[in-house]
């Protein structure tokens, strides 16, 4: 039987309330969003917070996907299912729709949130790679502060983020660029499992040339963005040759480890294959 260690329970009714509780209760307090990352960690006693601040009611304040100028803004309490079913994301940022189809299972997607997933910062977590590929920014709030952190500066290694003890993620901002297409490719062993490897890609075409490419990997080690792969595409027309070079560069930069999901050699090969597939789909969507 897996049971979390004992804790004191608080429920926050607003962002202000949650931030006030965090400041008051100190570093022993943790926010509980959808619970599908933190509760399993608590059952395994990998996390033993003294206080759990339940922010489930904040779904009404922070559950949204909306267009705002040249960005799409996603509230941190938006559940996976809302992301999967969002017509706006399907039309303009299909990489989210691709990824959500293969994140966990429909029942888990009813509870888990984007903010919770990003804050767990598991190296195999899909939305971190999605956000890296599209160049998202993360809004982090404290009682008297608000910071907008680029995704590259958000992750601080496995299970560590830029979010301070008395802070919380409130929003994810994704830039909309004309002429863009994006895609996510993941291989898992069975429905709902973590990735063996996964690749997220976003390309922006201007006058027939690749102006910007974002390429990110999940579950294969190292940082999520692949700068070498992105550089292999910048300024070139989209072509199979260019895509294959970028895929090879991404595979070279991966640092997978051998485990029950596959050997390091296999995962490295897979990373290249998935990047190539994602590039083809993203480019097709960019020209549609």
């Amino acid at each position: 039987m897996q049971v979390p260690a004992a804790f004191e329970y608080e429920r926050a009714s607003s962002v202000e309330h949650a931030l006030g509780l965090l400041a008051q209760l100190g570093p022993g307090a943790r926010l509980l969003a959808g619970g599908h990352s933190l509760l399993p960690m608590m059952k395994l006693r990998l996390a033993s917070p003294a206080y759990v601040i339940d922010i489930d009611p904040l779904v009404s304040e922070l559950g949204y996907v909306r267009e705002h100028g040249d960005e799409v803004r996603i509230g941190a309490m938006t559940r996976h299912r809302e992301l999967l079913e969002s017509p706006l994301l399907r039309e303009k940022l299909a990489i989210f729709t691709d990824a959500e189809r293969v994140i966990a299972d429909p029942v888990v997607r009813n509870r888990g949130t984007i903010g919770g997933a990003l804050c767990q910062a598991d190296p195999s977590e899909d939305l971190s790679a999605v956000c890296a590929a599209v160049g998202a920014s993360i809004v982090i709030r404290g009682l008297d502060s608000e910071r907008v952190v680029p995704i590259e500066a958000f992750g601080r290694g496995p299970y560590r983020t830029a979010v301070g003890d008395a802070e919380m993620v409130t929003e994810i901002r994704v830039p909309l660029r004309a002429g863009s297409g994006s895609a996510y490719e993941k291989l898992d062993r069975r429905a709902g499992d973590w990735a063996v490897a996964a690749a997220g890609v976003s390309v922006t075409l201007t006058d027939g040339l690749i102006e910007r490419a974002g390429i990110a990997l999940a579950a294969v080690g190292a940082g999520t963005r692949s700068a070498e792969a992105e550089a292999a595409l910048a300024g070139r027309p989209p072509s199979q040759e260019a895509f294959e070079q970028a895929a090879a560069a991404a595979a070279d930069g991966a640092r997978p480890v051998s485990d029950q999901r596959g050997s390091a050699r296999y995962k490295r090969h897979l990373a290249g294959v998935l990047v190539l597939r994602a590039l083809n789909r993203a480019a097709e969507r960019a020209t549609r």
Binding site: Y9, R11, L32, G35, H36, L39, P40, V52, D54, D56, P57, P106, V107, V108, N110, R111
Partner: peptide, 16 residues
Amino acid sequence: GEPVKSCTVLAATASR
């Protein structure tokens, strides 16, 4: 009305 895995929800959360 929506399915959830009750091993991964606190009873306190479910009271809403």
